[in-house]
Design a binder for these strands. Structure first.
Lengths: 154, 154
DNA sequence: CTATATATGTTGCTATAGCAACTAATGTCA
DNA sequence: TGACATTAGTTGCTATAGCAACATATATAG
């Protein structure tokens, strides 16, 4: 006869929770920085970052790259268009397909933000040695790839 | 005379972004599991987890432990009270202070969820070897502590 | 003992996330 | 070609996050 001892989880030591809180902390820093100086949300910034890398992407392509759901993306794009930070041209071949890119103003803002982002990332990662940094990055990437796989094979 | 070459960031290789997406993927898994079977949000589950560890905590103490902002906490607690998963007693000494704990039903639900959570965590971490697992955990903890410090010293 | 500060929790408001339904354009297959 | 499926993007709806203002209770300083 076995006695059933109930398990108690420690939230603090639960890895998904640690990841969540840490990620939230980081988002908070960046969110504050972007909001205060540029009135941009992280979502909006991510869209701009992708469009700087890959101009003339469609909304769907941006969605894939940023993992932003398409309805959220659509509304964020509207705001960026209103502020004239990005521009949109619809394709002639396929009238559904849009081609998005940064405007000159958008590129200016991008160039202002990048050094700030890079510095923030440095500040955040300065708790690691160089080797720890690369270890963490590698492990995180492994985990990321794994979660992507899990998502697509339920 | 120096020429100013504009830097282009790769979003995919930006660590805060990788962390965010990975964390979001994980939250998605858990969110689906808790919602489908128990109609609980992750926030609600975290509150229950803390109250199982530390019964008779006040809302403020739960907020500290879970990093859930107090207004969100307040509303989540209301729902858990409505569902009779937790109970609340206000202290006699200090009538502001509440003492929260799981009800019997709450403990039943907790006991149902724990093995599920543990299994999910295993599935998620099975992309790591044992040593990688502990490495990642250690590094994540370092980063977490660091972000907490950064938050409190702006 | 009173005035002020602080602590605990709640409520109001806004912005965002995310799902689902929808429109419009294009592709496919019989 | 014509019915049906798929794709791109938008809009509606609900739930949640998070800030600020608030109400109430307690602590503290003069």
């Amino acid at each position: 006869m076995t006695k059933n001892i109930d398990t108690i989880i420690s939230l603090e030591h639960f890895l998904p929770y640690q990841l969540y809180v840490t990620s939230n902390n980081l988002s908070g820093f960046f969110s504050d920085a972007y909001k205060d100086k540029f009135a941009l949300s992280i979502t909006q910034w991510r869209i701009m970052a992708v469009l700087r890398e890959l101009p003339d992407s469609s909304a769907d392509e941006v969605s894939l790259k940023t993992h932003i759901e398409k309805s959220i993306l659509s509304r964020a794009i509207s705001k960026l268009l209103q502020r004239n930070l990005i521009q949109r041209v619809f394709s002639q071949q396929d009238k559904r397909r849009s081609m998005l890119s940064l405007t000159c103003t958008g590129i200016d803002v991008y160039n202002d933000i990048v050094p700030l982002s890079v510095q923030y990332e440095k500040d955040i990662l300065n708790c690691f040695s160089e080797s720890e940094k690369s270890q963490f990055s590698t492990l995180l990437n492994t985990l990321y790839q794994h979660t992507e796989k899990l998502k697509n094979t339920p």
